[in-house]
Each structure stands twice: as C-alpha cells, then as structure tokens.
Design a protein around this nucleic acid. Structure first.
Lengths: 193, 193
DNA sequence: GTCTATATAATGATAGAC
DNA sequence: GTCTATCATTATATAGAC
C-alpha cells in the first residue's frame, strides 16, 4: 500500500472518470437543470474547477455522459426472442429507494426539458436505440414499431419512476409483467400474425 | 374605446388571469426549471412582482397552472366507445411548428424532473386522469390498464414532440393511427377478449 | 493536478414609492 | 394595482497560487 495511496491522487484519467460517473448518476437523478457542477465534482471527491478543466463546460460534460450511458444498450441489443421479457422485466423490477440506479432512460426523461440536452439526446437515441432496434425487427413498418416500443417503454418509466404513479407502483408485478410482455411481443411480431 | 383603454389597466382579476395563462404556456414549453417568473410576467405585460403578489411563490403559481391545464380532460372524459380513436388521433395530429400548443402532457413531461413539481403533478394526475379513467374501464385490473394507457400516450408524445423522433414523425399517419388505436382498444377491452 | 478565491450573471423574493 | 430598486442566493466559469 505504499506505492498506491488509499486516496487516488493526481491522476488525470481516474479523476476524469470519477467526474464522468458522478455526473451520470447526478444527471439521471436530478436532470440537467437540477444539478450543479459543484455537487457533481464534490461527489467525485474534487472541486468544480476540474469539471471544466476536463470537459470544458457543463454541456460538454453532459454529452460525454450521454455517450457513456447509451453505449451500454444491452437492453435492446441482446437476444430478440427474449426482448419482450427483458423490457417488461425492466419495468416491473423494483429499485432500491435512495440509491436509484443510473439507467439511460432516467437520464433521458429527466434531462429532456433542457433544449440543448434534448438535442444531444435526440441524436444519441437515434444512433443507439432506434437504428439497431429497427434493424432487428422483421416485417413491415419496422421503424414505426421500434419507435412505438421505445415510446411505451419510456412512458411506463415516466409514470412509474419519475411521476410515481400509484396505480403502476401498486400493480401486481406478475400480471403487470405478463401484460407488458404481451404488448411488447405483439409489437415485435408485427402485423404478420 | 373611451371607457376601456386598449391596454388593460389596474384590473386584478385580468392581470392574475394573464399571468396564469402566460405561465401555462411557459411551463409547458420550458419546464418548471426552464423559465423564470420575470419572463412569465413580462409575457403577461407586467413585472415579476405581481407573480408573487397574486400567487405567493413560483411553486404556488405552478400548482394553479397544473389545475388549469388538467381541468379540461375532455380527451379522457368523453365517450368510451371512441376513446381509442380519440387518443390515437391526438398522437398523429400534426401540430404547427413554432406555436406549440400548451397541452397538459407537455407540462407534465417538461416539469417532471423538478421534485416539488413532480409531487404536484402526481397528485393532479391521479385526480384528473387515473381515477376517472379507471372508473370508466370495465373488467379486471382497471387501475393498471388505465395507467398503461396513460404511459403509452405520454411516451408517444415524449418521443414525437419532445425528443423529436424521426421514426414517429416520418411514419405514415393512417397506418400509425390504426396501430395505435388497436393498442388502446385492447387496453380498454381488457383480458375479456 | 488540484486548490482557493473571485468575476459575472441569473434567479426567487421583498421593501417601499407612486 | 403596479412599479423600480434591491437583497440574498445560487449558478457557471475563470485567474492565479501551490
């Protein structure tokens, strides 16, 4: 423990990474407007100065965060046969209170109001979600069905996790899962049925 | 034009109303965090002082705006037989660019990130949308199905109007209408089918 | 590489004049 | 009933020390 002190010190790459992940959590939880660079930096163990040093501005930090969050799209990228279950499962899965997970749709929902953040998100969504999902779907109007799937998924998270709808929160998890999986599956199958 | 000057002057009720409608438009467009009381007041033709004079605080102004916006719920309150068409129609109807209409779902989407605004919205949504819609639906799990309908509706508007998804914007209106109406109808009908 | 201190700007809210 | 002027707070971003 002599060569590597317990507190990472003067390491540009590690500091940059710590800021980036702190920002991902903070933007996902509070939205672009709801958090300041000072607090993002404080959670990362540094001061706000280094945010601008490593990212230039809050807006550029947000761009980097979006790319990080949307790079892992295992939700839509995996096995098509289980996609409906995967999406439905994500909706009904309980999340620990207080330690809200930093997923990309919360980042999207909470930062969409800010005009510049919306532009950054629109571009990233098209590249990381709409395009690969559309490419995976069979049958006619794949692009439209992909968008409707994303809309259903985003709307459910909006009501359940951002608004906190009691009806969705109190619903029986098993039957909610079944109903949602069926809806997603019919969108995946398309009008061929 | 002698007794009523062209510019409304020193009329408390009219001024309050002007502020309220200016705030509705502003909050719908920019979200709770995205607009200041000064600019809301300026659009209403007064200074920011009167916002606090008539509403007490920005937060109380927002509460009044939410009640105003959600009071007209003709979309969900009308004939149940045509509800699915009404919802699908609202999604595909083109909206004039630049003069964005001030509807309640934009208010919801853009202000949800703010914690206090989210509380106010959650309460108002439960009273004005979830409760009446649940009461109208037949069959089991009416509350859950009502919430899923709201989620689908909100998610579609999120992608189309806030994020600006090209896939939804470019979709053929007629087939999109048919697909969405079918989804809403199956939620209205429930598992009885 | 990281800090303290500060410049600059915008916000919500209030006091007091008219 | 409405204004101008101001306070207190907070935000992003930067200059300069170590």
């Amino acid at each position: 423990m002599a060569s590597t002190p317990p507190k990472r010190a003067r390491n540009a790459a590690a500091t940059r990474d710590a800021i980036l992940h702190s920002a991902l959590a903070a933007f996902s939880h509070h939205g672009y407007d709801g958090i300041g660079v000072r607090e993002i930096a404080r959670t990362a163990g540094v001061t706000g100065v280094l945010v601008n040093r490593y990212f230039g501005s809050k807006e550029e930090l947000f761009s980097a965060v979006v790319e990080l969050a949307f790079a892992d799209n295992s939700l839509f990228g995996g096995d098509l046969a289980l996609l409906a279950q995967r999406l439905a499962s994500r909706i009904v899965t309980k999340t620990k209170k207080g330690a809200e997970p930093t997923d990309s749709f919360l980042l999207l929902l909470r930062s969409a109001p800010h005009p510049r953040a919306a532009e950054i998100l629109r571009d990233s969504i098209a590249r990381h979600f709409e395009r690969p999902l559309k490419a995976t779907l069979q049958g006619p109007r794949a692009s439209e069905r992909a968008a409707v799937m994303l809309a259903l998924f985003a709307g459910l998270q909006l009501l359940r996790r951002v608004i906190g709808s009691k009806a969705l929160a109190d619903a029986n998890n098993a039957s909610l899962f079944d109903d949602l999986a069926a809806m997603f599956q019919s969108l995946i199958d398309g009008p061929a049925a």
